[in-house]
Nucleic acid binder design. Structure first.
Lengths: 208, 208
DNA sequence: GAGGTAACTTACTCCAAGGTCATATTGCGA
DNA sequence: TCGCAATATGACCTTGGAGTAAGTTACCTC
């Protein structure tokens, strides 16, 4: 019998890294960057703090790794939908639908990307800026098209409207996270009802 | 000449408290609760840290005091507008207008009330909940009325729509904070254009 | 002008959390 | 089977910021 708990347990680095990322993503997404300690990540991952540092270097490094995985997933999902040819309000809806599906098993991931408690400088800020920029670009595309259609042409108006749209998106995801009994499908249907009610548009065929 | 810097400077407690609150509100609203240290508040107020503790008891006590002042101002402003008889989308606009005016000299106050880095328990959380509840009640009133008009009756749909509305409000204030060159009046006009564009409603008379 | 009190500061304590070091165990190739 | 690299940890160092103890100065009243 070993005299200490140290020593390898036969788990390869890649596997451990994956385990740590899962635990960290969940905690960061739930408690926020500032509210999560590295020790609190190590515990559910079943390992000790120094191993986390050995693999990810720092708390920021750990967060960046989580961010890259989650951000890539979300950005790709949204980009695929944007390139699928759907336009107008329906494009917004389809994007919501895709995000709801993606987030269904791990809704806390959303907060990761827009966490206001994350550091405003350094590596984390840069990675966040990358994904925020990719997502914002898509929003600008969609909102810009829609704005032109209803006669909103002033660039500052469009800029504000982009912000509003992203905020609506965030609010709907946030509401959903607070109502875990609602399925992704039900959420999409809800969005259709709300959009229809507010804009008067016809989105009846979206739920095919 | 005095041998130390200690000793009264003849400033009455009420005056000092007011100075401290001004400095604290600005810092909390800019850097957030978590990002602001009590020492950082003391410095621009021109005093030392223990005096802050002597007057406000704790960092939470200090934040609560800021919150009460700011929250009361905002809640009263919004309640007055709500009771003034204006209805429908115009009520939303008038509320935005009132908040823009109130915030013009101190836009950072907005973030104070919805600061996500504030503690989730204890006195601060309670005070925040109080004002959030007052403001949410007004939103529910206004949104509920509007929702009924466009045939949205499911309580969960209304609940989600309330969240969306508050988020739009927050986005518009946030955009404005990021564009300090825009006057409160210009912002109100912008909101009229956006609302008109998105909903198709006629708000032409609002800018009287 | 003596003393009580309000206003004020210096110099600490304490703790949580980020980060590091020295060391222990085991799998595996030569 | 020998030894090295990879995996792992307990114990430690360090820092920043919340909070406090004890003392200093000045105003105000009698």
């Amino acid at each position: 019998m070993p005299r200490s708990n140290a020593g390898t347990k036969g788990v390869p680095r890649a596997d451990r890294e994956a385990q740590i990322l899962v635990a960290a993503t969940r905690l960061f997404g739930t408690l926020g960057y500032a509210g999560t300690s590295v020790a609190a990540v190590a515990e559910p991952a079943g390992i000790s703090k120094p191993l986390v540092y050995s693999y990810f270097g720092s708390k920021e490094g750990l967060y960046s790794a989580c961010l890259r995985r989650a951000g890539e997933q979300l950005a790709v999902e949204m980009e695929v939908i944007a390139r699928s040819g759907v336009v107008g309000l329906e494009r917004g809806l389809r994007t919501l639908e895709g995000v709801f599906d993606l987030l269904e098993p791990q809704p806390w991931v959303w907060r990761l990307i827009f966490d206001p408690t994350a550091p405003a400088e350094g590596e984390v800020a840069e990675v966040m800026a990358t994904y925020t920029a990719r997502i914002t670009a898509l929003a600008e595309e969609g909102v810009g098209e829609l704005a032109a259609l209803v006669g909103i042409s002033d660039p500052l108006d469009v800029s504000a409207l982009v912000r509003v749209w992203m905020s609506i998106f965030d609010a709907l995801v946030g509401w959903w996270v607070d109502h875990p009994d609602q399925s992704a499908e039900a959420m999409t249907a809800r969005c259709v009802r709300l959009f229809t009610g507010v804009t008067g548009a016809d989105l009846g065929t979206v739920l095919a």
